[in-house]
């Protein structure tokens, strides 16, 4: 009798060990299949796109003829829009992060702000586009310009900048703050002389991640009415005579890389699809490059700092 029970138990153990192995195998296979998809996507994009990449592709305006079209106005537009985005989002985001982590008292306003930031991070990007269309384009009459686009994207990445600033501050041990305050530093001196420099690596990483997200955003910019066919460049920000810097470019119409790519994908001709793939290659190179940089920075700072 007991021998039979033992046999039964042994069989059960054996079965469960099999399940365990099988699941482990499924886990490995699925993980690698997902990575395979990433790989196939990259290969497919490069196979179609790389042959189109040439110097003239970077220095030509879009055109009705697929083989003469290029991305000049798109990459210039992307750089200008990103500049506005960074200038608008970084100071506000970092300041908000410092306030919430270091100054804010636990009360209902802080609580509301926190829930609100979590929520904003989950709002679909196209909704930001609608808001920008209603407020920036029509109420403030900024038009469908680089300025509007940059501000829209800066609102979109603000939650990311805030959250990563807070996370960077949180890794600084409380002892640093106490030591500085014990030596007579004011709260602001603690922030300025200790917390900001020590968290700079983490904050910087967060900003790069946020910008890499903004660079690929298409929907909100389509919504505010970015044009898809731009055959000129905005006015140069630098001038030969006084006052040397001009801000006319801010109000110029624009296009950006992802919008140019979307425009080419939605055409039926296969030659334009090849252009789309080429633009995709450049875009993916930008955004993966930024992510890789962020990963490297994170790794480096994690190694360097020892509390």
């Amino acid at each position: 009798m007991t021998a039979e029970i033992m046999k039964d138990i042994k069989k059960k153990i054996y079965e469960h060990k099999i399940y365990d192995r099988v699941f482990s195998l499924i886990g490995v296979i699925l993980t690698f299949m997902v990575l395979m998809v990433l790989f196939v996507l990259l290969i497919d994009l490069m196979r179609n796109g790389v042959p189109r990449l040439s110097v003239s592709f970077f220095t030509s305006y879009p055109s009705r003829f697929a083989n003469r079209a290029g991305i000049l106005s798109a990459w210039v537009g992307t750089i200008l829009v990103m500049t506005v985005t960074a200038i608008a989002a970084v100071p506000i985001g970092v300041a908000a992060g410092i306030y919430l982590e270091e100054y804010a008292r636990k009360n209902w306003i802080t609580n509301l702000i926190e829930i609100n930031i979590t929520n904003l991070a989950g709002v679909p990007s196209i909704i930001y586009g609608l808001m920008a269309l209603g407020i920036f384009v029509y109420q403030l009459e900024l038009g469908q310009s680089i300025l509007t686009a940059g501000l829209t994207l800066s609102l979109l990445i603000l939650p990311i900048v805030i959250v990563s600033t807070r996370e960077a501050l949180r890794t600084i041990p409380i002892g640093i703050r106490e030591a500085a305050q014990a030596a007579g530093a004011t709260k602001w001196q603690v922030v300025k002389d200790h917390l900001v420099p020590y968290s700079a690596g983490g904050v910087f990483t967060g900003i790069i991640i946020a910008l890499s997200r903004a660079i690929g955003e298409t929907a909100p910019l389509l919504t505010i009415g970015a044009l898809t066919f731009i055959a000129f460049l905005p006015d140069s920000p630098f001038m030969g005579e006084f006052p040397y810097i001009s801000f006319d470019w801010l109000l110029s119409p624009f296009t950006v890389m992802p919008i140019q790519m979307f425009n080419w994908v939605s055409r039926p001709q296969i030659d334009f699809h090849k252009n789309a793939a080429a633009a995709g290659c450049v875009l993916i190179f930008m955004s993966i490059g930024m992510n890789a940089l962020a990963m490297y920075l994170r790794y480096k700072y994690r190694k360097k700092i020892q509390w």
Partner: peptide, 20 residues
């Protein structure tokens, strides 16, 4: 590496869906 999938611009996923 898996998180890299989330870093790819969505317009590229659209291209991939339609043409691959």
């Amino acid at each position: 590496l898996i998180e890299l999938l989330g870093a790819i611009p969505t317009v590229i996923y659209g291209y991939f869906a339609l043409l691959f």
